[in-house]
């Protein structure tokens, strides 16, 4: 194989001879390693006049799972479509691994895989053919071994000779994922990957997505299911009426915005809150069997800002005894609903 070894040598030499890039080292490192997608000042107004995106800035880190949350019509799909080249931006630009997705579309698109929201397919071709087609379409040479790996990882191997029209919705969804993975993308977009998919299949899909992330693929998913974002995402972006209202680490988000609840199961039921406890934000629940205390989860420093010790002392003083207690942090869903409501 003299040819291939010569080629490798020459390409290595070539790489060594490339002049050092301009700009500070940190900047270069940040751009080239940290962010795999950079969205800058992106706006989209459709011909109908509907403004789907308003000045969106977003940086997706290499190797992360980023969940884009938002109500229907918030602009999730438009954002993905602009990045993937399905929709023209009105303003702003998108860099994919440093390549402008309009001027240098080949380089930008070849590392992206897209799983659309709609279950679309060439109804009459087989699973094997349609997945192989996707690979070829993205300019990659035939590689039956890779297609086999992809189909097996998605439990589609047994169905490879089936026509798409004969598959169930969940199976079609898997085929779309297989198509998106056929050309070995570095970035995978999943637009509502588990919409209309039963719970078991959803869990399976989460496993697949985690496996992909472990292999170094960056994943951006949009979802209605907060549970999904909570389960999967490293970071979360919330989009509302075309504006990215928040981008945050999932854990930080839940910590910052999460309200906590302390529930005390009482030994003796109460008719009403006793006097002297008005200062605490207490409510009676479960027909007087329980007291619920709501406090801000972010004030969890050393000093008793949450006021739990004080509350317990006051309860003791008022002669209220409890047999059990537990605390609960808001789920992402509650945070999300609150966020969207507050800003609406």
């Amino acid at each position: 194989m003299p040819t291939s070894s010569t080629m490798t040598e020459s390409s290595l030499t070539h790489r060594d001879e490339v002049p050092a890039p301009q700009g500070t080292r940190e900047e270069m490192a940040r751009v080239s390693e940290d962010c795999v997608i950079r969205v800058e000042g992106l706006s989209k107004t459709y011909d109908s006049g509907f403004q789907a995106l308003r000045d969106v800035d977003l940086a997706i880190r290499r190797g992360e799972i980023f969940a884009l949350l938002g109500p229907n019509g918030a602009g999730k799909t438009t954002l993905i479509s602009v990045i993937c080249g399905l929709v023209n931006a009105t303003e702003g630009r998108v860099l994919v691994d440093g390549h402008d997705n309009v001027r240098d579309y080949r380089r930008a698109r070849e590392i992206i895989g897209l799983v659309p929201q709609e279950l679309t397919s060439e109804a009459f071709s087989t699973v094997w053919d349609t997945v192989s087609f996707s690979r070829g379409l993205f300019g990659k040479p035939r590689d039956p071994a890779h297609i086999e790996r992809v189909l097996k990882s998605l439990s589609l191997w047994d169905k490879r000779r089936n026509r798409l029209i004969t598959l169930s919705g969940g199976m079609k969804r898997r085929v779309l994922i297989a198509k998106a993975l056929a050309h070995e993308p570095e970035i995978l977009f999943l637009d509502e990957p588990t919409a209309g998919v039963d719970v078991e299949l959803r869990r399976d899909m989460w496993e697949v997505v985690r496996g992909l992330r472990d292999s170094g693929v960056t994943i951006i998913l949009t979802t209605h299911y907060i549970e999904e974002a909570e389960e999967m995402a490293d970071r979360i972006g919330v989009i509302r009426a075309g504006e990215l209202v928040l981008v945050e680490e999932k854990h930080a988000l839940m910590r910052q915005l999460g309200r906590k609840e302390l529930t005390l199961q009482l030994r003796e039921p109460l008719d009403r809150l006793p006097d002297g406890l008005d200062d605490h934000r207490l409510t009676l629940a479960e027909d007087g069997q329980a007291l619920i205390y709501t406090y801000d989860g972010r004030r969890d420093g050393d000093d008793d800002q949450a006021g739990i010790a004080e509350l317990l002392a006051d309860l003791d003083a008022a002669g209220i005894r409890f047999k059990d207690l537990h605390t609960r942090q808001s789920s992402l869903e509650e945070i999300f609903v609150r966020l969207v409501r507050e800003e609406a």
Partner: peptide, 14 residues
């Protein structure tokens, strides 16, 4: 019609 045009439009082809 089927929507599978998305793949053509998102592929690195002119």
């Amino acid at each position: 019609f089927s929507g599978s045009i998305y793949e053509i439009l998102s592929a690195p082809i002119s």
